[in-house]
Amino acid sequence: MKKRGLAAAAVCIALIGAVWAGWPEPAGDQVWAYQKLQPADYRLLHSDALGFVTAKADEGFELHTRYAGVTSFEIRCKGVLVMDVENAPSRVLIRVPADALTRAPDIERLRLSFERWLDYHQSQGALLVQSAGTSWIEALLGRFIGAVPDGQRCPTRA
């Protein structure tokens, strides 16, 4: 009887290990890179982000400028980073953490407006780098399995 119990426990442990090993890794951050902006153009991008955050302040959005030279800012939703924009020496980098679309779906609209603006205002504003992110099914399932607690989510308004 004792051997059967140990064998059942060993089978359960092996099954749990197999499921754990086969579980997909969480998706990484998405990063987009564009040509470096002139200071005046970067201020326009920053101003657009400030307008977005001001309109959604009651939903928990905040804008934080990271450096005194105003070369980088981040947008937070209820204190959690959902977008990071940097006018680096070589290019503009826009980073969106993996859980940002679940936490704050409206951030995608802002990112798309940045993308359209950057493509339009740069003579060769093509997308240089884009890392793989979550698939639409992962994002959908993430909402249903409670990947981000409702109290930490910034709601979307139509």
Rank of each mutant, 00 (worst) to 15 (best):
M1L: 15
M1H: 15
M1N: 14
K3N: 15
A7H: 15
A8K: 12
A9N: 06
A10Y: 13
V11C: 05
I13N: 05
L15I: 02
L15W: 01
L15D: 01
I16G: 01
A18W: 09
A18M: 11
V19C: 04
A21Y: 13
G22L: 09
G22P: 01
W23A: 11
W23F: 14
W23C: 08
W23N: 03
E25A: 14
A27V: 01
D29H: 04
D29Y: 06
V31R: 10
Y34N: 05
K36M: 06
Q38L: 15
P39I: 10
D48G: 11
A49G: 14
A49Y: 07
A49M: 09
L50H: 12
G51Y: 05
G51L: 07
G51K: 08
G51A: 07
V53M: 01
K56S: 15
A57K: 14
F61D: 01
F61M: 04
Y67H: 13
Y67E: 15
Y67P: 10
Y67F: 11
A68C: 02
A68G: 07
S72H: 13
K78F: 04
K78I: 06
G79R: 03
V85L: 06
V85E: 04
V85G: 09
E86I: 14
N87Y: 09
A88S: 14
S90Q: 14
R91W: 07
V92L: 11
L93K: 08
I94D: 02
A100Y: 08
T102Q: 03
T102M: 06
I107Y: 04
I107M: 06
E108I: 07
E108N: 12
L110I: 11
R116I: 00
W117R: 03
W117I: 00
L118W: 04
D119N: 11
Y120M: 09
H121Q: 14
Q122K: 06
S123G: 12
Q124W: 12
G125D: 04
G125T: 05
G125I: 04
A126G: 15
L127I: 08
L127H: 05
S131A: 00
A132F: 01
A132I: 02
G133N: 11
T134A: 14
A139D: 10
L140W: 11
R143A: 13
F144V: 09
I145H: 12
G146N: 00
V148W: 01
D150E: 15
G151Y: 08
C154H: 04
C154I: 05
R157L: 05
R157A: 07
A158L: 11
